[in-house]
Computed example of a mutant assay.
Amino acid sequence: MQTTRNSIHAAKAPAAVGPYSHAVRYGGLLFLSGQTPIDPETGEIVAGGIEAQTRQVFANLKSVLTAAESNFDAVLKVNVYLTSLDDFSAMNAIYGEVFAEPYPARTTIAAACLPLGADVEIELVARDPLG
């Protein structure tokens, strides 16, 4: 089992907006930093409301998983942060398109605000296919 922390940089994900890694590989697990709905091409939050933002977040997470040689099937735990729980149903519908049964464990909470004015941020823990 791996006992050193190795960071993962995903070239196709938005650049980190602080001093952190896109993901860390450790002890047979992948820990993905929260992704917001930043378009990697423009560096801006996508327009179009919670549906467009949630889709962009999952696209960004997919880029990080791909860089780690993984995918959504390996996800064990999801943490979802919404600035309004009124957006839960719309986010949940898109979440249901991304994950299949058996679903990962999940926590969803309301956050007062998120980086760059995002309405949603999602972080993941997954099995490491290389670990």
Rank of each mutant, 00 (worst) to 15 (best):
D119Y: 03
E101Y: 05
L76I: 13
D119R: 12
A93W: 08
S21P: 07
A15W: 06
K77N: 11
I8F: 10
P104R: 06
R55K: 12
L85S: 07
S7F: 15
A47D: 13
P40R: 11
P115F: 07
D119H: 08
L32R: 02
Q35M: 15
P14W: 05
E44F: 14
V120D: 00
E51D: 14
Y81W: 06
V78L: 03
T83S: 08
G28N: 04
G117L: 14
A11E: 15
R55N: 03
A68K: 05
S63M: 09
S89T: 15
S7L: 07
Q53Y: 08
T4F: 05
Y95L: 04
E123R: 12
E97P: 01
G48D: 12
G96P: 01
T107H: 09
A93M: 14
G48L: 12
A90H: 07
H9Q: 10
D86P: 01
R25L: 03
Y81A: 11
S21A: 15
P104S: 06
L82D: 02
L124V: 04
V17Y: 11
L65E: 06
Y26N: 07
E121F: 05
Y20D: 07
A52F: 08
A15C: 04
I38A: 02
V125W: 00
S70G: 03
A23N: 03
M1Q: 08
A52C: 06
P40G: 04
G131R: 08
A47S: 10
I45W: 09
V78E: 03
A111L: 09
A90N: 09
P19F: 07
M1E: 08
A110H: 14
V120N: 00
A67F: 07
V64Y: 00
N71E: 14
T42M: 06
I109M: 12
K77L: 15
A110K: 15
T83N: 06
Q53I: 07
D87P: 01
D73K: 13
V98R: 03
A10K: 09
E97I: 04
V64P: 00
M91W: 13
I50H: 00
Y81R: 14
L30G: 02
